[in-house]
Amino acid sequence: MQTPLNPFKQALEQGRAQIGLWVALASPYSTELIAGVGYDWLLLDGEHAPNDVRSTLTQLQAVASAQQAFGDGRSHPVVRVPLGTGEAGTAIIKQFLDIGAQTLLVPMFDTAEQAAQVAAAARYAPTGVRGMGSALARASRWQAHPQYVHEANDRVCVLVQAETVEAMKNLDAIAATPGVDGVFIGPADLSASMGHPGNAAHPEVQKVIEDGIARILKAGKAPGILATSEPQARKWLAAGARFVAVGADTMLLDSGARALLAKYKDGAGAAGPSSY
């Protein structure tokens, strides 16, 4: 039995844009519902959402259930780990891979050296330093995939986040790092790092993002971004972004609940999360 291919990674390599949704409610029930909608990818957030290895596992199982129910490979799960560098980051990456994540998004990269550490942490020797333990791992289906340790390195997709002024200075080297499949530009953190907190729409920030997407493409890697307004999402898709998250489950729940209440109560629903 062959280790499953990574359709998300294949799509990025082929230059096909992938539309995603942030998943932060940390609920396998809501994640299973969203996984059946038809987004190309879902970001299971372990950085800013209340997720750990166990809750991420239940959501990976929920996504797999939706895929089985619809039978069309719907919604590839991308797992954002809380950190990636150092011994702690290497250990966390190993745990998320062992529970079955194939694609990882890792936050806060400033240098190519940090990116290389994560690329190594996600792969078995001799390419990397991922610890051997497939007999205990859901990823190998507890060795039902007999060639897992030989095939896993090619299936893993590593996405790193560039979201500071320093990262943008080093972006060419980060994107060129072997084993890095894509670079995600974080608009919120980048705008704060540039002195415009809460204002990712600032012209200076927009210019840096546009330049960053072009530089990532030039390196032969896939650029990604979160854009929760349609004009921004379409702008970055047109600029060449290959994986774009166009919203978040928390925002959908909030806006939907406010819109429904506004039909029955005057003045309700006026507040809401800002978008960029």
Rank of each mutant, 00 (worst) to 15 (best):
T3Y: 10
P4E: 12
F8C: 07
Q10K: 09
Q14E: 15
Q14G: 00
I19K: 08
A26H: 05
P28S: 09
S30A: 11
T31L: 01
E32C: 04
Y39W: 05
D40H: 13
W41R: 01
L44Y: 00
D45G: 00
D45E: 03
P50R: 10
N51S: 02
V53L: 14
S55L: 01
T56W: 02
Q59C: 03
Q61A: 09
A62E: 04
A66N: 02
G73W: 00
V79T: 15
V81I: 14
A88C: 01
F96T: 05
D98R: 09
G100D: 11
G100C: 08
G100L: 12
A101Q: 01
Q102L: 13
L104T: 07
L104I: 12
A112M: 12
A112I: 10
E113K: 04
A116V: 08
A122P: 03
R123H: 10
V129N: 12
G131Y: 00
G131I: 00
A144M: 05
P146A: 08
P146S: 06
P146K: 07
N153K: 14
N153Y: 11
V156E: 09
L159T: 06
V160G: 01
T164P: 06
M168E: 04
N170Q: 03
L171R: 04
L171H: 02
D172R: 08
A173S: 15
A173D: 15
I174E: 01
G179P: 08
D181W: 00
D181N: 09
V183K: 05
G186H: 06
G186E: 02
P187Y: 04
D189P: 01
S191R: 06
M194G: 09
H196W: 00
P197W: 10
G198I: 14
N199D: 15
A200F: 01
A200S: 14
P203W: 00
P203I: 01
Q206G: 10
K207E: 13
K207S: 03
V208W: 01
I209W: 05
G212M: 08
I213L: 13
R215K: 07
G220K: 13
P223K: 06
G224H: 05
T228A: 11
E230H: 02
Q232T: 06
L237Q: 14
G240C: 04
G240N: 12
G247F: 05
D249N: 05
D249C: 07
L253Y: 00
D254R: 08
S255E: 10
A257I: 05
L260E: 12
L260W: 14
A262L: 07
K263A: 03
G267N: 13
A271Y: 10
P273L: 10
P273H: 09
